[in-house]
Computed example of a mutant assay.
Amino acid sequence: MIDITTGHITIDSNNSINPELTILELKNLNLGESQIETDLQNGWTRIQVNNLKIDNEYFLMTFSFLNSAIQIISFIVDNKPIQTNKSWYDYSIKNEKLKQKEYSDWLDRQIGSKRKFKWGEIESVLDNKGGGSSIVMRYGKK
């Protein structure tokens, strides 16, 4: 799914995400069950793609663009459709630490242990302020 040489994410045999992706190109792919666009009014725009199915896994992906150029992709992955209507009552730091470990293990299975590449970096993170764990890809030479 993730090409460590190029930073491309293969969606299916016809579609992929790449470091040169623009907002318009992403919208035209019409990915997932739904897309939510948020213009942060500071040059940044986020597009959340809900329940994008790749192979036998479901992804909730947030694409962050600066001046229409892709900078960051953060995502969570599960073997079943992801609920997007969870509340803070569902949150616990213990569960998020377990998820972060699951995401680290998922990355190990997908790409091995290396996390920095010519195209950028990828890691499993726990965001205490944001209240969740995810996998984050940052494009740009490191």
Score class of each variant (00 low, 15 high):
F63A: 09
E37V: 13
L24W: 00
W44E: 07
N30Y: 03
K80C: 09
K53S: 09
E33G: 04
Y58F: 04
W44R: 10
P81A: 12
Q35W: 00
T45W: 00
F63P: 05
N50D: 06
P81K: 09
N95E: 12
P81M: 15
K86P: 08
P81R: 12
S92G: 06
D90L: 13
S64W: 01
N51A: 05
S68Y: 00
I23E: 09
T84D: 09
I73S: 08
G32S: 05
L21C: 07
L66H: 12
N85Q: 08
K94E: 13
S87P: 08
I93W: 00
Q48H: 00
K27W: 00
I73P: 09
L29D: 04
P81S: 08
L29F: 02
L24I: 07
K27Q: 10
E20V: 09
K80P: 00
N95I: 10
S87I: 12
L26W: 02
I72E: 11
Y58D: 05
K53C: 11
E20K: 14
L21A: 06
F65P: 03
L29P: 00
I54A: 09
L40K: 04
D78S: 15
T22K: 14
T38Y: 02
F63H: 01
N67E: 10
I76Q: 13
I54T: 07
N85G: 08
S92N: 03
F63Y: 02
N42T: 11
I23K: 08
S74R: 07
T62I: 10
I36K: 08
I70V: 10
L52K: 08
G43N: 13
N67I: 07
T84I: 09
N79R: 13
L24E: 13
I23N: 03
